[in-house]
């Protein structure tokens, strides 16, 4: 009897280990396994059932709670999107870094996620009758997120240049430059002045790639040579921390996308400065899972319509402070 229980426990443990893998499939499997044994089955079934019920209840609570929590001041889209999933109207999940203004960030006034890219995505969804799900993600796991289908696209100032083969891309819509931001009173005036300085870039960002990537054909040698003159090139989780660190004197300069740098400049007037010399030029596009041309074509079609009737420009004008209208390359 005791051995039976022990064996059952072992079995349940193994099932439990697997339960981490299959979402719903493992519960019935555990139940089925229990059916075959006799004496102790009832107890086991009860526990499995109870566990199932609890998880279900948790999930229900979670959808409500998550919708509430993730979008504090009643985010219409998210709250509506969660229960509507799978019902009428296809969901369109955009993965973005919520610490990347002006492309994607938390709007303090409404408590909703917004930004240039998210507004474009919203408009695309409105026109196609899709439900937009704004999913802030850890930018370091973006490849896993998109490959596993957890998000439908990455739309957040995503650099196209140099990553052509890794995703299925929309047409580029914004021309971006990687620039160097320094403190307003810094003695750094040109890229040459960066010699011996501490420079930082966001991990997984194209700015970091620009300074580290060696394609092997010499095309990036100039930037690599520049990076070699630094005292150090460090990585940081998000650009806001980078600017805070620089204010505190830890870093002398930040290699950053120009839109993000301008947003920092406009929110902290007179504190920072951008060098005239750029590190590199690149283009933003929307990234879809490699091979997902169907979704790409649909989004591209609507985006082209929006560019043609001036909607894209109108949305960009809202971010004129960050000079987005000048950076647009779609419809020009």
């Amino acid at each position: 009897m005791k051995k039976m229980i022990a064996m059952l426990l072992t079995g349940m443990l193994c099932a439990g280990l697997l339960a981490g893998c299959g979402s719903s499939s493992s519960a019935p499997a555990a139940g089925a396994a229990a059916d075959q044994k006799e004496e102790t089955t009832e107890a086991v079934e009860e526990t499995t059932e109870a566990a199932g019920d609890a998880v279900e209840a948790a999930a229900q609570a979670a959808t409500g709670e998550a919708a509430e929590a993730a979008a504090p001041a009643a985010t219409g889209e998210q709250a509506a999107a969660a229960p509507a999933e799978g019902a009428a109207g296809q969901t369109f999940t955009v993965g973005f870094d919520a610490e990347y203004p002006p492309y994607g960030y938390l709007d303090e006034a409404t408590g909703d996620y917004t930004g240039f890219d998210l507004e474009l995505a919203q408009e695309v969804c409105n026109r196609r009758g899709w439900i937009l799900v704004k999913q802030p993600i850890d930018w370091n796991t973006k490849d896993m997120e998109i490959n596993s289908g957890a998000v439908d696209c990455l739309w957040n100032g995503m650099t196209y240049t140099g990553r052509e083969e890794e995703y299925t891309w929309s047409d580029p819509y914004v021309s971006n430059s990687i620039v160097v931001a320094v403190m307003a009173d810094s003695d750094i005036q040109t890229k040459a002045d960066l010699a011996g300085k501490n420079v930082v870039a966001q991990s997984g960002s194209s700015a970091l790639t620009a300074l580290q990537n060696d394609p092997g054909d010499g095309s990036n040698d100039e930037n690599l040579a520049l990076a070699a003159t630094f005292n150090s090139l460090e990585e940081i989780a998000d650009y806001n921390s980078a600017f805070m660190n620089m204010s505190a004197g830890i870093y002398h300069a930040i290699a950053v996308d120009i839109g993000v740098a301008r947003h920092q400049l406009s929110t902290n007037e007179g504190k920072y400065r951008i060098l005239d010399e750029e590190i590199s030029k690149e283009e933003y596009a929307i990234a879809f899972k490699l091979g997902n041309t169907e979704l790409r074509d649909q989004v591209q079609e609507t985006l082209n319509e929006m560019a043609a009737d001036g909607t894209v420009n109108a949305i960009a004008e809202k971010y004129a402070e960050d000079q987005l209208p000048e950076m647009l390359i779609i419809g020009k």
Partner: peptide, 30 residues
């Protein structure tokens, strides 16, 4: 990360947004 992405990478099941909650609870609880 393992709990969340395993269904896709091991079993090829497409993930949904609601799976995040379950994955978080499973990961933390275990």
């Amino acid at each position: 990360i393992v709990v969340f992405f395993m269904p896709y990478y091991v079993f090829g099941i497409k993930l949904t947004t609601s799976w995040r909650v379950y994955a978080a609870l499973i990961g933390f609880s275990v």
